[in-house]
């Protein structure tokens, strides 16, 4: 039984110049249980991880990450993006049970 995927945090500028490479930083609340830990009663805590992260820009996948249990709890993922036009980002985190959580952000062209 996978635990609910927690709150995502995303930081990117609201606007950028054409051609500018911005940094997109993301953080999501999740225990990333490895399946190798035991609780106080000695029972194995079942594995429960975010398995995949995807970033889409106007519907097109621009970046993805497949995560293993070796990613720390509350996964932090940062990557660049070259802004060519205004548009809409959609970030999606999916766990091994297939549940997912998304966040969307708009970016404008400065000036």
């Amino acid at each position: 039984m996978a635990s609910p995927i927690g709150q995502p945090r995303v930081r990117l500028p609201a606007q950028a110049r054409v051609g500018e490479v911005i940094e997109i930083r993301t953080l999501i609340s999740h225990a990333m249980e490895t399946g190798q830990r035991r609780d106080q009663a000695g029972n194995v805590i079942p594995r429960d991880i975010i398995k995949r992260f995807e970033a889409k820009f106007d519907g097109e996948t621009v970046f993805a990450m497949d995560l293993a249990p070796a990613i720390s709890a509350n996964p932090y993922i940062a990557f660049p993006f070259r802004v060519e036009r205004a548009g809409r980002f959609e970030f999606t985190w999916t766990n091994e049970a297939g549940d997912s959580r998304s966040a969307t952000h708009e970016i404008r062209i400065a000036g």
């Binding site: 490479v21 930083r25 820009f57 097109e60 996948t61 621009v62 970046f63 993805a64 990450m65 497949d66 990613i71 996964p75 932090y76 993922i77 940062a78 990557f79 660049p80 993006f81 070259r82």
Partner: peptide
């Protein structure tokens, strides 16, 4: 990590 030319720079942090 799966990257595309849209990133403009090949960098990942985690």
């Amino acid at each position: 990590f799966t990257l595309t030319p849209a990133l403009g720079r090949a960098q990942v942090d985690t």
